[in-house]
């Protein structure tokens, strides 16, 4: 070797080249990853308006929102009373019915079991609410998990009453 300083300079040049190159590779890979994220047209389909004027008490409808089912249930007084009388301590995922259904007559929630994503059946199960046939999760009349493998209550999406007959989800 001609002298001792040379290796250091060389190291710097190589390190700089490697580091600079790595940045570029990273930047080039990002578009390839990001292209799989929801695209602009999918993101734009954020809200759906639903006419609920024809739903009888005790009945529900299922609508599609962002590719998933949303249950809109018009609850009877008994069902409301049942949901509101439960002690929070008895719940796996404690949450007040008042927080889940601002307007107690209407329960709007994502009809997706929080276990592995199946769609629960209505009026089934030990708690008069929903029952997921895939792995046996029982939900009550507020859509809260009571028994079975699911860890959480069924989710409440963002929604609002545009007027007395119309709910806007999303």
């Amino acid at each position: 070797m001609s002298d001792q300083k040379k290796p250091k300079r060389r190291d710097f040049l190589y390190t700089a080249s490697y580091a600079f190159g790595a940045v570029g590779v990273g930047a080039a890979i990002w578009p390839l990853i990001d292209q799989m994220n929801p695209d602009a047209s999918v993101k734009a389909l954020a809200s759906t308006e639903v006419d609920v004027s024809l739903i009888e008490p005790g009945k529900s409808i299922t609508v599609l929102w962002r590719g998933k089912p949303v249950f809109i249930k018009r609850r009877t007084q008994e069902e409301i009373a049942e949901a509101r009388s439960v002690e929070l301590d008895d719940l796996i995922d404690p949450e007040k019915d008042e927080d889940r259904a601002k307007n107690p007559e209407w329960l709007v929630m994502l009809g997706v079991c929080t276990h592995l994503g199946c769609v629960p059946l209505e009026d089934k199960g030990d708690y008069n609410g929903w029952f997921c046939p895939c792995h046996g999760s029982h939900y009550d009349t507020s859509g809260r998990i009571r028994k079975g493998p699911a860890p959480q209550n069924m989710q409440i999406p963002k929604y609002e009453f545009v007027n007395n007959n119309t709910i806007k989800i999303g």
């Binding site: 990002w30 578009p31 990001d34 292209q35 994220n37 602009a40 047209s41």
Partner: peptide, 13 residues
């Protein structure tokens, strides 16, 4: 055209 307009970085790819 969907790729060109809506897909993230679709135009680039």
């Amino acid at each position: 055209e969907h790729i060109m307009r809506d897909v993230n970085y679709g135009w680039l790819i």
